[in-house]
Design a protein around this nucleic acid. Sequence first.
DNA 1: TAGTGGTCTAGACCACTTT
DNA 2: AAGTGGTCTAGACCACTAG
Lengths: 240, 240
Amino acid sequence: MRKTPLYQIVKDSLRAQIDTGELMTGARIDSEEVLADAFGCSRLTVHRALRELADEGLLVRNRRAGTQVAERDTGGVLIRVPRIREEVEALGLAYRYELLARRHAAPSRLVAGLLRVGVGRRMLQVVSRHWASERVFQHENRWINVDEADGALDVDFSEVSANDWLLKNAAYSCIDHEISALCADAETADDLRVAEGAALLQVRRLTHLAKKRVTYAVLMHPGDLLTLRSETRAYSLNAS
Amino acid sequence: MRKTPLYQIVKDSLRAQIDTGELMTGARIDSEEVLADAFGCSRLTVHRALRELADEGLLVRNRRAGTQVAERDTGGVLIRVPRIREEVEALGLAYRYELLARRHAAPSRLVAGLLRVGVGRRMLQVVSRHWASERVFQHENRWINVDEADGALDVDFSEVSANDWLLKNAAYSCIDHEISALCADAETADDLRVAEGAALLQVRRLTHLAKKRVTYAVLMHPGDLLTLRSETRAYSLNAS
DNA sequence: TAGTGGTCTAGACCACTTT
DNA sequence: AAGTGGTCTAGACCACTAG
């Protein structure tokens, strides 16, 4: 008949006290043993609750020193970088993928550096556009290190986007993102079918496995079409 | 003599197999009992490893059906929204906070709706600028629901920024972010000391506790000054 | 309905760090 | 030296769901 797990009850209880200011920054939390007594459960159950709250950044734990309420800040935010197709269709627009170019070329010094290949070394470049009905939703300029992405040379990317293919087929462990705003120069404006000088949201994405760089992509979005949103943390204090 | 915990060893082992493509999307993972045998540890240890990998989105777990490698996507990215002072100083520039206005006023329809207050209701508005040496790093237009932020009326925000004060003193559970790019209109360009039409990175931030809206802030940054970066997941496969 | 994950306990030992 | 968190075990029971 109990639906919510015990450790969750402990978590919710402490989180509520922190959120409401009942427990302020720096306040000491009872030791695991004391809390286990108070909640009438085992120490491991309390431990899990405290550990997960600490993982979320709400608590700071130290041996011997005990557990304290962490300093609150906006330090990290989980942003959803949506899948293009889904985002476009969520807007009620028709999604279309368009391959603009697929060629072997030598990337710029900057890109060569990011992908850790020698300057002048030729790589696979895939340029494409993602449409939302009559607007360009994203322009993508991607460089692929074929040494690290087996089979990429055999794909023509006319139907499946490079992003989708790589996610499924390449080995990688980590994707670094950088997000910034800039104005469209003449060429980019033409690519995106927007006015020169229009605001763009640019996402740069570097995919790698340990020290092996797999691919680097520069994604351009018209500023009026894409808004990134943080995941709203599900919060179940009062389900009113 | 063992330094890395057992559950971490299990995690690393599975993560490596997923990253390298050894275990592809959809592949079945052995049951907890089998893995516990294989690693020579208890089921709980394996359970913790699998649970944490599932929390990270690498695995999908189902009762009876077992555990599978999740479909990989770029669905969520943890973006660091840096503390202004630290970000500015990290750039080697001098940080300065400037209060531009602090007044009681009725917010726009849009803001009133976001803060769930009646149109025409007066709220506390705090407008400020954050400088990085001779450049404006951020322009901040903030509305505070004084009903939900005890003591805000007694603070003049000339020395301490509204953000810092609220983080320390207000009760809240959740901060929603929206990020977009836009071009500076005449007024904003003047506020930010940039050319009209310059690209801006805008962060909108709504802070609330359950259904109580505490504060809403619109933060504008010159596009050339701020780049948001994802947290690089610490990855310790080969420390070469 | 059988197999899988989800939770929980009681007890243990270890590692770290403040006192 | 002592108190705290970190990890681990063996065993148990429950909850869900695919077959």
